[in-house]
Simulated assay, not measured.
Amino acid sequence: MATTDELLLAFQLFDAANKQDPNTEIFDGTTYPKEMLYGIRMTERLNEFAPNASEALILTARCQHICRWEITRESYTMNREGYLKWRHDLKKFHARKASSILQEVGYNQDTIDKVCFLLEKKQLKKNDQTQTLEDVICLVFLEYYFEPFALKHPVDKTIEILKKTWRKMSAKGQEAALKLPLSKYVSELIFKALSQ
């Protein structure tokens, strides 16, 4: 898809919002605001995984975690119910934040509605675009975030997380996951998860 002025401006505003993230991550010797780096990784992976993605999907990938640090996990009860409520509230929050920026850029309501639909992960496994977004989220998680998580948790828990992640992905996503540049440790965990 050809890059439009609106798309570039939306990216700039999404990144400017995520630049405010007080949490940082060092990658290749450079320190980044965590959610800004996440947005860039989502865009890069989407470009590789689905080069013909729609403009709505391209926008959604970049703002998928917009200002996530503003609603902390710790502000909810630390059980499954609290976790699910946090996730639900985050989706609504991201949709509101993204809508406000997209309106400022001048996108029409149809595009904004499509981005909100995707941010809220509606019709997963039934809608191709929602599924592509979920595949990209899982691929970015496996490539950049799973190993640090796995090193802090018991093996059975990490294997359960892998099984859940795998179930969320399409066959195309699973195939792409097996080609990621993963460490030997993560590759072994995936092998264990898939053989159970």
Score class of each variant (00 low, 15 high):
residue 4 T to H: 10
residue 5 D to A: 15
residue 6 E to R: 06
residue 6 E to M: 07
residue 9 L to A: 11
residue 10 A to C: 04
residue 11 F to A: 05
residue 12 Q to V: 01
residue 14 F to R: 06
residue 15 D to N: 14
residue 15 D to K: 04
residue 16 A to R: 07
residue 17 A to K: 15
residue 18 N to P: 02
residue 19 K to Q: 11
residue 22 P to D: 10
residue 24 T to L: 07
residue 31 T to V: 13
residue 34 K to N: 08
residue 35 E to I: 08
residue 35 E to L: 04
residue 36 M to V: 02
residue 39 G to C: 02
residue 39 G to K: 08
residue 39 G to Y: 05
residue 43 T to P: 00
residue 45 R to P: 00
residue 46 L to K: 03
residue 49 F to S: 10
residue 51 P to H: 05
residue 54 S to L: 06
residue 54 S to N: 05
residue 55 E to L: 14
residue 58 I to P: 00
residue 58 I to N: 10
residue 60 T to R: 05
residue 60 T to V: 07
residue 61 A to G: 04
residue 65 H to K: 14
residue 68 R to K: 12
residue 68 R to H: 10
residue 71 I to W: 06
residue 73 R to E: 12
residue 73 R to W: 05
residue 78 M to H: 14
residue 81 E to G: 02
residue 82 G to A: 06
residue 85 K to T: 14
residue 87 R to K: 15
residue 88 H to N: 10
residue 89 D to P: 00
residue 90 L to K: 06
residue 92 K to V: 13
residue 95 A to M: 05
residue 97 K to S: 07
residue 98 A to C: 01
residue 99 S to T: 13
residue 100 S to V: 11
residue 101 I to A: 02
residue 101 I to D: 01
residue 101 I to V: 11
residue 102 L to E: 10
residue 102 L to Y: 02
residue 102 L to A: 05
residue 103 Q to E: 14
residue 103 Q to M: 11
residue 104 E to P: 00
residue 104 E to H: 13
residue 105 V to F: 03
residue 106 G to W: 02
residue 107 Y to C: 03
residue 107 Y to K: 12
residue 107 Y to P: 01
residue 109 Q to S: 15
residue 113 D to V: 06
residue 113 D to C: 01
residue 116 C to T: 08
residue 117 F to G: 01
residue 119 L to M: 08
residue 122 K to I: 06
residue 123 Q to M: 10
residue 129 Q to F: 11
residue 129 Q to V: 04
residue 129 Q to M: 09
residue 130 T to Y: 08
residue 130 T to C: 07
residue 131 Q to N: 10
residue 134 E to R: 15
residue 134 E to Y: 09
residue 136 V to P: 01
residue 137 I to N: 03
residue 139 L to S: 04
residue 140 V to T: 09
residue 140 V to S: 06
residue 141 F to R: 09
residue 144 Y to A: 04
residue 144 Y to K: 12
residue 145 Y to D: 13
residue 146 F to E: 05
residue 146 F to Q: 07
residue 147 E to F: 02
residue 147 E to P: 01
residue 148 P to R: 13
residue 148 P to I: 14
residue 148 P to M: 07
residue 150 A to E: 11
residue 152 K to V: 03
residue 156 D to C: 01
residue 157 K to W: 11
residue 158 T to V: 11
residue 159 I to K: 13
residue 162 L to V: 12
residue 163 K to L: 02
residue 163 K to Y: 00
residue 165 T to D: 06
residue 166 W to F: 01
residue 167 R to D: 13
residue 168 K to L: 14
residue 170 S to E: 04
residue 173 G to C: 03
residue 176 A to F: 08
residue 178 L to N: 06
residue 180 L to C: 07
residue 183 S to T: 15
residue 184 K to E: 10
residue 186 V to W: 03
residue 186 V to M: 02
residue 187 S to Q: 13
residue 188 E to F: 11
residue 188 E to K: 12
residue 190 I to F: 01
residue 191 F to S: 09
residue 194 L to Q: 15
residue 195 S to E: 14
